[in-house]
Simulated scan of single mutants.
Amino acid sequence: MLILLPPSEGKTPATSGSPVDLARLSAPSLTRHRTKVLRALARASARRNALDILGVGPSLADDVARNTRLDTEPAAPAGQVYTGVLYAAAGLDDLSPAQTELAAASVRTISALWGAVGPGDVVPAYRLSMGTDLPGVGPLAPTWRPLLEKVLAPRAAGDVVVDCRSAAYLAAWKPGKGTDWVSVRVLRELDGKQSVVSHNAKHTRGLLTRHLLTRDGAEPRTAEDVYKAAHELVGTTLIDATLIEGKNGASTLELVVA
């Protein structure tokens, strides 16, 4: 299986350690574009209108200032840097050795700065969203799309993609036709009525990620396998789970929470 996650908006900066070494990150074919985006982000973050360029408020000025020195900032494994609701529930930094190995092979965070990284890739905390039109690079999602296609399409071939990303990060790469692709959708049930949720959706996607990495049994290889694994959570964290089959290998896994 290949589990695709969005990055967390908030990130936990490393307090010690060496800076990022782009050459040592996974998917080395992305190094050239990572370097280009990193340099453009540093320049943009030093501008007077940096907050407007990056689409953030004054409360995040320190995060934007950190963007100007990411090549010297301490770095840590991505599973520790990415925090927030989804990552807290997934607990990628709290796995057994065998589960850590599975996560390293199966989990990829789609990032506006790095393209795609695994939980063990050592990176600094940064502030950049995929929807940004970055001066010197342009709208980020289209610039990453052909590069991620070369990296992720071979990995997804013959396997199942469990997609927990938001729309902005979905724009950076979509599995091709015929790929077994499961998008995870979370609904809340209240007084017999169901509605789409956002905050609780992140938590539930994190719980699903952790369950897929820590459960007993064979690793899911098809959409039906993912559905059966998710259904194991019904009665505990879920009210129900349903697999809705689409066209050309695309399916939607609906998870219902209270």
Rank of each mutant, 00 (worst) to 15 (best):
G17M: 03
V117S: 05
S106C: 13
I110C: 03
D21W: 07
A104N: 10
V161I: 07
I239M: 13
A116I: 14
L38E: 04
A153H: 03
P97Y: 07
R108G: 02
R39C: 08
V186H: 03
S18W: 05
L243G: 08
H33Q: 14
T236C: 05
R47H: 14
T31I: 13
T72L: 06
A23F: 08
K202Y: 08
Y82N: 02
M1F: 10
V186I: 01
D62Q: 00
G138M: 06
L253N: 08
G217A: 08
D225L: 07
K193Y: 10
A104V: 10
E254T: 07
S198L: 12
E101V: 11
I53N: 06
D93N: 15
G136M: 04
S16R: 15
T204A: 13
A105K: 14
R43M: 13
R34H: 05
H211M: 10
E189R: 12
P7G: 11
E73P: 02
L134D: 01
G249W: 12
A141T: 00
T179G: 02
V161Y: 02
R43C: 12
L5T: 05
P74R: 00
P146W: 06
D62H: 04
G136S: 04
D159C: 10
P19C: 06
N49S: 15
P74A: 05
I110D: 07
P97N: 07
R108N: 03
G118S: 07
T209V: 07
M1E: 10
Y126V: 08
S8M: 10
S111F: 14
V123A: 05
S29E: 04
Q194R: 11
P146L: 06
P28Y: 06
A76V: 03
S59Q: 12
R155D: 07
K174R: 15
G118R: 00
G131H: 11
V137G: 02
W173N: 02
R165V: 05
R66G: 09
W173Q: 01
E245Q: 10
D216V: 10
L30Y: 08
G10V: 08
A141N: 04
H211P: 04
D163Q: 02
C164D: 10
N49G: 13
E149R: 03
L4I: 13
E101W: 00
D180T: 14
P7N: 12
R210V: 00
R48E: 15
A40L: 00
V64E: 02
D94P: 09
A218R: 14
A104F: 00
C164A: 13
L212C: 02
E149D: 15
D180W: 12
R188N: 08
V64W: 01
K11N: 05
D52M: 13
S183V: 08
V85M: 02
P119F: 09
V182T: 13
L187Q: 01
L187I: 00
W173M: 04
S111M: 13
K11G: 09
L140P: 06
V186M: 00
S29G: 01
A116K: 06
A105N: 13
V151H: 06
G178L: 10
Q99K: 06
V137T: 08
